[in-house]
Amino acid sequence: MLTVLGITAPIFILIGLGFVSARIALVNREQIRGLGAFVINFALPALVLRALVERRLDEVLNWPYLAAYALASLSLFTAGFAVARWLRGQGQSASAILAMGMSVSNSGFIGYPIAVMVLGQTAAVAMALGMLVENLLLIPLALALAEAGTQRGSGGWALLRETGLRLARNPLIIAIALGLLLSLLQIRLPAVPFRVVDMLADASAPVALFVIGGSLYGLKLGGMGGDLVQTALGKLILHPLALLVAFLLLPGVEPQLMVAGLLFASAPMMSIYPILGQRFGLEQRCAAALVAATVLAFFSISGLLALLRWQGLLPG
């Protein structure tokens, strides 16, 4: 449990700094939203671009693992969207963002540090494969559904066209497309542009966590209970369970890679989750869900590590 605490403690400290800064009026709500816009428009696209161009796709592609991870994550996304949209009566944009929170992990800042401590270099391969699924499938799908939900009264073709234009202007989608193209063509960025990308990418995590803390100040939890329960339960419990079922249905994944996948799937949602929700006015709801899931992940991941060690799948 100390392993998990050592990884999550800096996250809570940065969130706390943001909350205290907003509480004592060092920053106001508009400044918090401005920092969020910086993350979504510059830092996060740079993070995705760096992740895609740093390695060749054919160096890490493991098709059985990719298929299992994509099947589990997409199945959970679909189920989460359906429950939120038609069972709980949420709007389309809110349902899409909620479903994304259930199915996209904080791979870089929680999943990877835990996995690399217990599995070594296998963790890097699992993170690269998971980020392919998240950045090329889940995040674009969630943003497309959320954007479509903002188009009121449009016909089918007009809706499709407007959503496509919005996505084409989205810096995150542009970064995914550019990174994938550069990776496929095996083109490396020159030193100076790569350094700029690297600096922006390094800013994404601390600024995003600071923004989360600032967004939590003044938050009213009334009416959010259902969202918090669905998102946290889906991300911390159902996502790793769905992946375990997918591994059983799609054999061919080596045991150590399976363990790494389960650790990544059991991590809370990505730290920029509230930033993605900001575009649709959902940043406070997303921030509350992220904090709740991160707190609970301390217990759920510790339990998973103990179970895996009991089964003899981890070093003693």
Rank of each mutant, 00 (worst) to 15 (best):
I7A: 00
R56D: 15
L66I: 04
R33A: 09
N28R: 03
L74C: 12
V48Y: 03
M102T: 11
I40M: 15
A43I: 00
P113A: 05
S105F: 00
L44K: 10
L5H: 01
S21P: 00
T8G: 07
M102V: 10
S93N: 06
A46G: 05
I40T: 15
T122E: 15
R23K: 13
S105M: 03
T8C: 03
Y112A: 10
I13E: 06
G89R: 05
V83H: 06
L74T: 06
A46W: 03
A22Y: 10
M102L: 13
A51S: 09
V53C: 00
G101C: 03
V83C: 08
T78K: 08
T8A: 11
G80E: 01
G6T: 15
L87S: 04
R55N: 11
V83K: 09
F12H: 00
I110W: 12
A84D: 12
S75W: 04
I24A: 04
V48G: 04
L5D: 08
N106Q: 08
G36W: 14
P113D: 03
E54V: 10
T8M: 07
F109A: 06
A96W: 12
V39S: 11
A84V: 10
E54T: 10
N41Y: 06
W86D: 07
M100H: 12
L57K: 07
S103G: 08
A96Q: 14
A84M: 11
M117H: 15
A82W: 15
L76E: 02
F38L: 08
R29W: 07
S73L: 11
G16D: 02
Y69E: 09
S103D: 09
L76H: 04
M100K: 07
P64E: 00
V27R: 02
S21V: 01
T78P: 08
V104C: 09
F77Y: 08
I40C: 14
A84I: 04
V83Q: 06
L71N: 07
A37V: 13
S107Y: 10
A84E: 09
L98V: 13
S107H: 09
I40W: 15
A79E: 14
W63A: 09
